[in-house]
Design a protein around this nucleic acid. Structure first.
Length: 646
RNA sequence: GUGCUCGUAGCUCAAUUGGAUAGAGCGUCGGCCUCCGAAGCCGAAGGUUGCAGGUUCGACUCCUGCCGAGCACACCA
């Protein structure tokens, strides 16, 4: 990353630390945090306490205990001491009571911590009556603006929009669950060149009957029509552009010769290609002209815009409703349009923006290309809009953190934007581009159906729900129709969201319908299934979670599967904070899968209702109640629901 | 050409940011339903982490150089 030299801190470090150091609420149950505090107090001479604390982690292997402190080796190296001896000293000094006894020194200087069974059991007892499952809200909550989904209103949403929408919603929910103030902002593309295409289409090719019947479908058709008239010509120009230019410059013979060379292996003729390119250019110019008119306040275009927008927004909202996604604000490009002139003026006044090749631009160190805030033709662009957006957000919400959940292809743009914004005076706000890869098909090309259209988001949702419905009908025929339908929706949509959230790599995303709607293995279904089985046990046990919570039965951890499950439950707070700090929902999905897996093993080995005694039975009911609540809360933070029966 | 992102099991992906024997799912093979839901559990096979060097107690992770992939490179967003 630009501006982040090797060895410098992660851009959200400040933020993460402040979250991690959230003061303890009534129940300070972030186990990792507690251990870190204990180890900080035992930092060896010459060591950095913060780094020493950070080196405390969950163990990589159960045989090394539950947590391990790895900081002694680094300190020993710097101080030229023997790491094992240093570790022995720390082990003697560190006070982990009542969480654990003295850590065990292993290997070159690892300190292994095994939590006390009694302590775990007591913690679980407290968690049982803690609505927040051990989360402690910060004394000074941060304000976070999450900018996500942000589709172009004129185009139908397709699978490519899913990632931003699903990941952004999850991050919003995670920060919210941690007690921060979150503003979910849908930065709609409602003012750009795509509207020029629609306006052009409307004026030249509209079908009023079709518009009356389904406005959005008709607008989408017009948009596609404009694209179809422009795209092929542009593709041809990429190949033959030089030849055409020569011809236009009067060098006809040279042009033909070059064309013949470029056209080798095709049936293209010069006249045909030249005509198509010219046509495409004419249409492109015409659509651009419509955009310019709209921006200039042209009455007719503005009226059409006002007429189209409600339909577009309603269509988007229908998709968001299905996905259970609720933005707090929908402030699109058009909203910021009136502010753009002042933004540029201010940049100029401060000497940040300068004239270059007719345009107004901001140069930043480390970037070759300038940041264009006013084009040569006087129009503003997305760079200006994005700056205005930061200004507005600062004035309106005074945020601590801005998250942009946007395709990684805009990485350069955001780097420049952040650099300019900081120099403009917004250096107090942490800004992060939460990037992700492009959606591709299994052939590693952009995902398309047979007829060449990108798969619509809604048909993907339908497909997933239908797949879930098949399994529901097969496995749960006893459930009434309405319930089966509901279960299919929760399971189907959960599958899609989880498939996206469990993978947060930067590399391009290979879309695979079968995997997207898969209902076995590491899927949301697995977690939902574990949850439903727990509810089933409660139904059969003829008691309720409420009754168990009120009774607060002692929880015993005699069985290894029981203990493993208990430790997983305790790790919910630290995992959620970790996921938030790293901006990676897949950290949460990994944890939840691990939790559900621990439960499944427990379920296999530890009878609940038929436990050896009523005390053991109630203790296990308490444990699985905690498990269920953690699964539900974790899934909720991913934007995924649960059902009691499925 | 410059920059960004990446390369891990047959496939899709993890790996807590330098920690101990690189883990899951799918697929394959083998066990488990007279026992709280088999959308499940248990086990097996499968790896020179693209290649070659380097840094150190220790490298998928950091450095250098190659190979390969995707993306972006002023006035689209």
């Amino acid at each position: 990353m630009v501006g982040l030299a090797r060895g410098s801190t992660h851009p959200t470090d400040d933020f993460r630390v402040s979250v991690g150091r959230a003061p303890p609420a009534k129940f300070p149950m972030n186990v990792l945090e507690q251990l870190r505090r204990a180890f900080v107090a035992a930092t060896p001479e010459g060591g950095d306490p913060a780094a020493f604390a950070l080196a405390v982690r969950p163990s990589t292997d159960p045989k090394f205990g539950d947590y391990q402190a790895n900081g002694c080796m680094a300190i020993a190296k710097a101080a030229k001491k023997n790491p094992r001896e240093l570790a022995l000293e720390v082990a003697k000094v560190v006070d982990l009571a009542p969480m654990a006894g003295p850590p065990e020194v292993a290997g070159p200087g690892f300190l292994n911590v095994r939590l006390s069974d009694d302590w775990i059991a007591r913690q679980l007892g407290d968690l049982l009556v803690d609505e927040k499952l051990g989360l402690s809200f910060p004394e000074h909550p941060k304000t976070v603006v999450v900018d996500y989904s942000s589709p172009n209103v004129a185009k139908p949403m397709h699978v490519g929009h899913l990632r931003s929408t699903v990941i952004g919603e999850s991050l919003a929910r995670i920060y919210s669950a941690l007690g921060h103030k979150v503003i979910r902002d849908n930065h709609l593309g409602d003012w750009g060149s795509q509207f020029g295409m629609i306006l052009w289409g409307w004026k030249n090719h509209r079908d009023e009957a079709a518009y009356a019947a389904n406005p959005v479908a008709e607008l989408a058709r017009l948009y596609k029509l404009a694209q179809a008239r422009i795209k092929p010509g542009e593709t041809l120009r990429e190949r033959y552009g030089k030849a055409i230019s020569l011809d236009e410059a009067g060098k006809s013979a040279e042009a033909r010769a070059l064309f013949a060379k470029l056209a080798e292996g095709t049936t293209d003729t010069f006249e045909d290609v030249a005509r198509k390119i010219a046509e495409a250019r004419d249409v492109a110019d015409a659509t651009r002209a419509e955009t310019v008119k709209l921006h200039a306040g042209d009455y007719e275009n503005r009226v059409l815009w006002d007429q189209f927008m409600p339909h577009c927004l309603a269509a988007l909202q229908a998709v968001y409703d299905r996905l259970d996604i609720k933005h707090d604000v929908h402030l699109g490009e058009s909203f910021y349009d009136p502010m753009l002139a002042d933004v540029v003026k201010d940049l100029e006044t401060r000497g940040l923006a300068v004239e270059s090749e007719g345009a107004t631009v901001v140069f930043s160190e480390g970037f070759k290309a300038p940041f264009i805030v006013r084009k040569r033709d006087g129009a503003y662009n997305y760079a200006t809009t994005d700056l205005a957006t930061i200004q507005y957000r600062k004035a309106t919400w005074d945020p601590d953190l801005l998250l942009y959940v946007v395709d990684h292809r805009q990485g350069d743009h955001f780097k420049q934007l952040f650099a300019v914004a900081k120099r403009w005076g917004y250096d107090g706000i942490a800004m992060e581009h939460v990037a992700f890869g492009t959606v591709l098909g299994q052939d590693r090309r952009p995902y398309k159906t047979r007829d060449g259209d990108v798969v619509g988001l809604e048909s993907l949702l339908d497909e997933a729900i239908a797949e879930a419905r098949k399994v529901v009908d097969e496995n749960s025929a006893h459930l009434p129709e309405g319930q089966r339908r509901h279960v299919a929706e929760v399971v189907g949509l959960g599958a899609i969201k989880y498939a996206d959230l469990s993978q947060n790599r930067m590399s391009d995303y290979v879309f695979d319908m079968a995997r997207m709607v898969a209902l076995s293995g590491n899927t949301a279904t697995y977690l939902q299934y574990a949850y439903a089985r727990i509810q089933s046990i409660f139904r059969k046990a003829e008691t309720t979670p409420e009754a168990i919570r009120a009774a607060r039965p002692p929880i015993a951890l005699s069985n290894p599967a029981e203990r493993a499950l208990a430790v997983r439950v305790l790790r919910y707070p630290e995992t959620l904070e970790f996921a938030a700090g790293e901006l990676k929902p897949n950290i949460l999905t990994d944890y939840l899968f691990d939790l559900a897996n621990a439960y499944s093993t427990f379920y296999q080995e530890c009878p609940v209702i038929k436990a050896e005694s009523p005390e053991r039975r109630d203790g296990r009911l308490a444990l699985i109640d905690l498990t269920a609540r953690t699964l539900r809360a974790g899934l909720s933070a991913l934007g995924i629901g649960v059902v009691d029966e499925m």
